[in-house]
Each structure stands twice: as C-alpha cells, then as structure tokens.
Design a protein around this nucleic acid. Structure first.
Lengths: 110, 110
DNA sequence: TTATGATGCCTTGCCTGTCTAGGCATTAAC
DNA sequence: GTTAATGCCTAGACAGGCAAGGCATCATAA
C-alpha cells in the first residue's frame, strides 16, 4: 500500500487536534476529516491514534465532550476546546515554531 | 532543572545526525556539539539518545565508523556518512518539509 | 434481500525512539 | 587530589503513534 501521506511525528497530533477544535466543536470522526481537508490531504490521522489522544487530552482538561445528535440524525460525541486547551494550543504552536526554526538553522549550515 | 531547550520530536534525530555528518566526519560527542552549535543552542541531543541512534543508523548502513586518534591525542569513534546515508538525508529532509508544510496549512486555517 | 461503503464509536497490543540515570576512562585545569 | 570536560556505552522506563480488530447505523447499489 502506497504511503504518500506523511507519518505524524510524536507530539504534533495534540496540536493538530486542538487546532481543529479551535475552529469549532466537532466529533472524533469529523476531526480526522477536518485535519485531512485543511492539510490538502497530506495529513491522515488514524482512528487508533485519534481516540486515545482525545482521551488523554480530555483527561488533561484541554477539551470537554458531550453526546449530541448529529445532523445526520445519529449520535456523536462532540469535543469542545476549553480555555485551558486554547492556552495549550498556543504553547504547542510556539514550541513547534521553535523546533522548526532550530531545525532550519541546522539545515542551512554549509 | 530548567527545560528551555525543546525536546526533540521522534524522527527528527536521525535527520539531524545525518546533517551534522554531511558537514564532515565526526565522533559522537562532536555530533552533539555540532548540532547544539548550529542550532544556536536550541537543540540539545542527549547522549542516551545519540548513541543508540548512531547504532541504529550504522546498522542501516547510513554511516560507517572507525576508531581514530583524535587531535587531543585520545581515541574516538568517527562516523562517516555513506552514499546511502546521504540519500537518506535528502529523503528525510523532504519528509520534514512536507510535514512542516502540512502543519502550516492546518494552522493557517481560520 | 443482501452486501458494501461511509460514518461513527472504541480497545488491545506492538513497536519505535527518546530520555533519565547510571557506569567507566582520559585529560586538563585548579 | 579533585573537578569539569571530553569521550564511550548501557539499562530501564515511558510515551505515543499505528495496525488491527470489534461493533453499530445508514444509504446506496446489486
């Protein structure tokens, strides 16, 4: 099976989930789709990665969840970013920026 | 102990090591210093991360090693990038670029 | 009717890879 | 003589992403 989609690096997933939720409440499956769509199909989050991550994130208080009726008439568990989660998102984005910068510095070396 | 230095993300270490070695043969301890210096002290590779990584990388044939006399008069194990390792470096840099781009796309979403 | 694919939830177990925390030797500096 | 820097290494803990599964609902197609 072709693997043209980039594997995630450990640590980026939380940030992506938080970012997806910062655009509005969403259920798990929808988070996957939103990330895929926003990244132009470049990032594909597996369910086996997402649900454990959502559980972790909820335990940390970065999101809350509640069951609601989906527009399709089916039930789905909607996740919502907390204020603390929003702060976390900012922190993780800042860390990511630092890392990208640092790697860029190393790479531009001749 | 203050932790202002970014923890590496899994997967970036190999690339950094290969990049460091692409600038010339070097021994383990020197690789750590070179990465730290090139990144303006932002990246600090732990020895407990480096040596297992070097072992893995050598097993894969990306580098070769040989014991030589260091300029200080002491022995040190010098690692050298192979042609295959150089190809790997290019691949990993390309993957890194794709990931950074993909994350940027997600992040610029409103 | 049935069966397939998309949508939705979840769990288990493996595996990789980084980090913490050690150990040991040599050399230079104090 | 002891400390700090340089040099090598290992063992064990741990996180987290992934593969692979299970289950249910609904729409569509055969």
């Amino acid at each position: 099976m072709a693997k043209d989609k980039a594997d995630l690096l450990q640590g980026t997933l939380d940030m992506l989930i938080l970012k997806a939720l910062s655009l509005g409440e969403l259920h798990g499956y929808g988070i996957i789709q939103r990330i895929r769509q926003l990244s132009d199909e470049m990032l594909n989050v597996e369910q086996g990665s997402l649900y454990p991550a959502l559980y972790r994130i909820e335990q940390k208080g970065w999101v809350t969840s509640k069951w609601s009726v989906h527009d399709t008439g089916r039930d789905a568990k909607f996740y919502k970013l907390t204020r603390f989660g929003r702060k976390q998102l900012e922190d993780q984005e800042a860390s990511w920026d630092r890392l990208v910068l640092a790697v860029a510095k190393v790479r531009q070396a001749t």
